[in-house]
Amino acid sequence: MDRRLLLGLSLFLCLFRLQGQEGESNFSVGFNYGFGSEFNNRNYTFTNHFYKAQLYYRLKETKKFQYEILVQPEVNFGTHQLLNFYFVKPEEPDYIEKRAKYVQLKDVHEYVLNIGFLIRKPISARFSFYLLASVGPMITDTETERMSDGFAFADVLAAGFSAKVQRFQFDIRPCVRHVSNAGLGSSNAGYNTKNIEFGVSCSL
């Protein structure tokens, strides 16, 4: 975590230097906080809250739309519990022990680096709507009946609303999130959650 923080601060300072040399920049940096839970599901519960750094880069701007790339380092704190222990099948090795283990309430920590593509539609000089799709690698520290610990992927689809005040932009962003490991681990049912994020960013 220390290396990632150092890398992020170095990038941030480099961007400010570029801004001072070249004038108006296509870059913005920001911070989001969000929370959510699984869709109604009889097999498990999953609630989460998360923190995201935001690095925006405006690729292109036309009369009607803006196109942006978004890089999002994220730390996600989840709470998971198996409700339906029959989800663990008898054909699995040591299934009785696994059922007893998985029905316990667990804390799940996820470390994610999502890369997203954003299409923004300005509706005035201050307000805009946007659509966002992102995907990226993730490390999770806790094994559950739905997913092995270790390497996985996080996919997010979101729609957002932004309000701009001078160099600052304030966002509200409902989203849906799917997490799985693409079959790389022994368990790959994954989680599906509905979330909402609130954020602020600053144009460099």
Rank of each mutant, 00 (worst) to 15 (best):
6 L>T: 14
8 G>H: 11
11 L>F: 10
12 F>E: 02
12 F>V: 11
16 F>M: 05
17 R>S: 13
21 Q>K: 09
22 E>T: 06
31 F>E: 09
31 F>D: 04
33 Y>E: 03
33 Y>I: 15
39 F>P: 04
39 F>I: 07
41 N>R: 01
45 T>E: 09
56 Y>S: 10
57 Y>E: 02
57 Y>R: 04
58 R>E: 15
68 E>M: 00
69 I>Y: 04
76 N>C: 01
79 T>E: 11
82 L>V: 10
84 N>F: 10
87 F>Q: 08
91 E>V: 01
93 P>K: 03
96 I>R: 01
105 L>S: 11
107 D>Y: 03
108 V>N: 11
111 Y>H: 05
112 V>W: 07
117 F>C: 00
117 F>V: 03
119 I>C: 04
120 R>T: 06
121 K>N: 03
125 A>S: 14
127 F>L: 12
128 S>Q: 03
133 A>N: 00
138 M>G: 00
138 M>N: 07
144 T>D: 06
153 F>Y: 06
159 A>L: 08
165 V>H: 13
165 V>E: 14
166 Q>W: 15
167 R>G: 12
169 Q>Y: 07
172 I>W: 08
176 V>H: 04
178 H>G: 07
180 S>N: 03
191 Y>Q: 06
192 N>L: 12
196 I>E: 11
199 G>T: 09
199 G>D: 13
